[in-house]
Amino acid sequence: MDFSVLTNNMDAFLEGFKTTIIASLIALVCSFILGTLIAVMRIAPLKALNWIGTVYVEFIRNIPVLVIVFFTYLAFTFSGMTAGTIGLTVYTASFIAEAIRAGIMSVPKGQMEAARSSGLSYGQAMRFVILPQAIKIVIPPLGNQFINLVKNSSLLGIVAGGDLMYQGDLVNAKTFAYVDTYVFVALFYLVLTIPLSFGVGYLEKRLARSN
C-alpha cells in the first residue's frame, strides 16, 4: 500500500469527502421531507392524493438511480453536484416514503379511531398519536436508506459532481495507482457509513427498550 497516494493528494480527497458529506446531508434532509409527504399522500383519505403518491413511488423506485441522475444532469442545465443531489433525493424519497408508510400502517386502526372520535383532526391525530408510534418501526429501515444514500452519492462522480468518487478518478488519472486510490476512497466512505450504521443499531436498541 502506497500511502504517498493519500498524502500527496490529501487536498483532493478531503475536497471530495466534503462534497460527499454535503450532498448526502442535503439529500438526506430533502428526501426525508419529500418521503414523509409522499407517504402521507399515499394514506390520506383523498383518492387523488393516494394516486399521486402511488405513481411517484412505483415510477421512481423502478428506475435505476443512475438513469435518474443522468436524466437530471442532462435534461436540466444543473451542475453535476446539484443534479446528483436532486437525483439522489428523488430516488431515495421513494424508498423512504415506503418505509414511513409501512410504519404508519402498522399502527393499529383503533388508534386513529380513538383519536378522531375524541375530536382531533386528521392532522392532529397523525401528529400526536400515529406518527410517534410509527417512528419506532420506521427508524431501522430509514437508517438503512440513509446508509444507501451515502453509498449511492458516489454516482455524483459520473456527472462530475466533485465528490469522493470523482476526486478519486482525478487522482487515478494523475498517479495510475488505481487500487490504492480506491482503497482510500472506500475508507473515506466507511468513515461515514460505519458510524451511521452503529447509530441506527443504537437507536433501534433504545427504542426496543422503551416499549
Partner: peptide, 20 residues
C-alpha cells in the same frame, strides 16, 4: 365533524389507549 365529536365520547372494546 370535529366539533360534533367533542360532544360524543366513545369507549371501545379494546380500549385503544395511546401506548406511547
Amino acid at each position: 365533524i370535529n366539533t360534533l365529536r367533542r360532544n360524543i365520547g366513545m369507549v371501545f372494546q379494546h380500549f385503544h389507549l395511546y401506548p406511547h
